[in-house]
Nucleic acid binder design. Structure first.
Lengths: 168, 168
DNA sequence: TTAAACTTTCAAAACTTATTGAAACTTTAT
DNA sequence: ATAAAGTTTCAATAAGTTTTGAAAGTTTAA
């Protein structure tokens, strides 16, 4: 396979994966483009490579900075802003895990805790079923939360060797 | 908090979480409703509880069956079909993990393997950067795949106690 | 201070996805 | 065989999301 074709395929696949995970396609594609680019790129470069408008490129770049996945770079003597992506895939995974934990898991944990306080008649099947589901989900969510917490602090090699050793 | 209010809140929260995870809101809500319902429900019950149309209810129920999250139930002497959800939260988590692995992770692994075969000049920064990203993502994805594989086979208590023990 | 270079914003348009509702279809009981 | 009960389909529509592009804003150099 040719490098040029492989790049296109990679960008496309990353975009698709992103959209299945609630990250918009363009954002994932811009990230992919920067990830495989050895040099920092300008807004213009990105607009051209992906055939997107200036407005779209600008918003997307801002979002990616907000997710901690890319950074601005200033080149001495140049007006233009350049963007580059952290190339360390473990950092990327941690950064995404951190953001999703904050944006999604934590609000859910908060609600589950509230819902655990519901009072009712232990003889009522409606109450019992509700309580059991909420309690069980709460436990699961807490375990996920603790595991993510560990992941955020961990070195890649240590993390996987620990997990895979136990499970092999 | 009142049981009735708590139920509504749970259904709403589950729906929101679903939509953040690429599962449509209605599907997540129907699942939530069945999860906290001690009895199997009819299409009518669901339509009414969630104020959705017959067509939508029918499609959503079919999708949930496709995900292995709910089942049809026949009551002796009744024409109507009833639906109920597996109440075991670990089973649900496994089922979701299994489907997403199949639908999302496996296609990505396939593409990554194709992309790893790309040939090029080791001195070319374009090539080196591309190759490194693809290789690193491939490794990460394989580790996730193995971990999920273990999870699919595991008992809940064993799984979490193994993970949390190592990480404490 | 001015104007060129560049960035940001946001309302409108394009696109995508979800939902409705009525018609077609299937099953069952008589 | 028929009609009642129930289920499924799908074209039309609604709702939601993303993208555009032009105007407004900002920064820099001369």
């Amino acid at each position: 396979m040719e490098l040029a074709a492989a790049k296109l395929k990679f960008i496309e696949a990353w975009g698709k994966l992103g959209s299945e995970w609630g990250i918009n396609r363009t954002m994932a594609q811009v990230h992919a483009l920067l990830l495989i680019s050895p040099e920092a790129l300008t807004t213009e470069d990105i607009m051209e490579s992906l055939s997107i408008s200036r407005g779209n490129a600008n918003m997307t770049l801002r979002d990616l900075i907000g997710w901690g996945l890319i950074e601005k770079q200033h080149k001495a003597g140049e007006r233009k802003e350049y963007f580059f992506a952290d190339k360390d895939v473990w950092n990327i995974a941690r950064q995404v895990a951190k953001e999703r934990k904050k944006r999604e898991l934590e609000p859910v944990l908060k609600i589950l805790n509230e819902l655990s306080t519901v009072a009712g008649d232990e003889k009522d099947p409606e109450f019992k079923t509700f309580k059991k589901s909420v309690t069980d989900i709460n436990k699961l969510a807490n375990n996920v939360d603790k595991t993510l917490e560990t992941m955020l602090k961990a070195e890649e090699n240590w993390f996987w060797s620990s997990i895979l050793k136990v499970f092999k």
